[in-house]
Design a protein around this nucleic acid. Sequence first.
DNA 1: TCGATAATTTCATATGACGCAATGCAATCT
DNA 2: AGATTGCATTGCGTCATATGAAATTATCGA
Lengths: 274, 274
Amino acid sequence: MRNEKTAASPAEDSESKDSRGSIQVIDRMMSLLDALAESNDPPGLKQLALDTGLHPSTAHRILASLCANGFVDRTNNGAYRLGIRLLELGNLVKTRISLRETAMPSMLKLHATTGESVNLGMRSGDEIVYVERTSSGRSSVRIVHIVGARAPLHTTATGKLFLADGNADSNKAYAERTGLPGSTQASITTLKALEQELERVRRHKVAYDMDEVEVGVRCIAAGIRDDAGALVAGLSLSTPTERFNPDWAPLVLETAEEISRALGFSERLEKRRR
Amino acid sequence: MRNEKTAASPAEDSESKDSRGSIQVIDRMMSLLDALAESNDPPGLKQLALDTGLHPSTAHRILASLCANGFVDRTNNGAYRLGIRLLELGNLVKTRISLRETAMPSMLKLHATTGESVNLGMRSGDEIVYVERTSSGRSSVRIVHIVGARAPLHTTATGKLFLADGNADSNKAYAERTGLPGSTQASITTLKALEQELERVRRHKVAYDMDEVEVGVRCIAAGIRDDAGALVAGLSLSTPTERFNPDWAPLVLETAEEISRALGFSERLEKRRR
DNA sequence: TCGATAATTTCATATGACGCAATGCAATCT
DNA sequence: AGATTGCATTGCGTCATATGAAATTATCGA
């Protein structure tokens, strides 16, 4: 139920914006852009005014300003939609986004709460390359993963994320290409077992390495996606086996998602991409 | 005639925005975003206020609003830069951009002024595929290019654009792969001649087909680039040889650039991409 | 430690954004 | 066709609100 303007009580029920310090016009503009972002087909002025709770006159004037600046387009029907200036500025933002720098703050946070080593790995051919790592001086345990180190996809937690992102064909090809070499007793070395494992990964959105790379080291990893929705890296928490704690999985996942968002990944957009 | 003091036109100097109808706050916001977009490294408040001519206090409040909405980020130094919300919205815009639909208005305009057939071609492997065409009923001449038709790269104007976009190696490979078959006397059939021609294309940003596909038909083509700067299509004007007029080349180029801009291509960003 | 510069907050004020209402403008119905 | 409805647009008086100067606080160099 959409309420008409009822004496314009300052604190409206819907979407209470914290008007403290923020400029009203800009907040209103933002709500219009939000409404445009959410609607799947170009809405008219009336619809937008309804969605945002703004007076049609106000909405019209703000939209006119946005149109004049290319933030909003009008279809030949007169309906409104987001304009290309946004694409332009968005691409500008993209050029300055660096995965490592973006990920670092979140990685440090995760490291601080867990006390364990946190790694950032990217796929390079049939291997994972570790490109960043939070090291704490007090960590007494030797960690296998150092920056620049490489490891196979099918034995590492991060690597499994990338395999899980592929399809059965590409994984079969990977298996044939590499022969699925194992480095410990726990390593997965058959295609069948690998596919089962990957299905688990897809379901939980989290991958594990249970002493599969090196005995005594376990990992929990979650995927990081960029603004285009592509899997660009894996965030992994690696611990000595005796301190391994599966309860950290949600935290790892959450942190990975936080980094994804910082890279411009958007759940909302992802759904629309299909 | 509102201003009486005609001694020295006071408000004409810097970037006269047409404040008619546009909301001031939004215009100021836009000038801040513009300033952010142009500066290569994150400026502070003072610098931004200077660049935009805004009062520091005003700039600060607007920027605070933009930060609250993710349009602007602050570095750990406190400097300002464009925020990821712009990436998000930009990607949203991207999903709705269709090359054909975007190109049509400009193509029709070009067709209207020239009276000649206008084609939109994309590369598909080693061929050009024509995906759109403006047809005028009164056009009495048979045009070879119909929608869906295919033609080799090295004989068509649009195809040359794509080849010119590649490097010597890829072109050599193309030549070896295809053997550079010719369809008329005018067709280029040697790698050396092709490279010379491509160099001309690179210089002029316009490619020609002088009876090279079919005797009696000539084309002028210019490239269309998307927001990522990639060459995605070629716009070509095709005429019977007797009506061929090289003076149309600038118009074709201009139209192609217009379409590129509509796709989100930005000269400014392009320079920064290096 | 103290200056100096920049960032932020405060506050009275007039600017300019607001909402109402009247006018266009088109499409649908009778 | 004329009437009617629904939406977009435009003037205009009013007052909320964004503004700019100044004061306060943070930040940085020496």
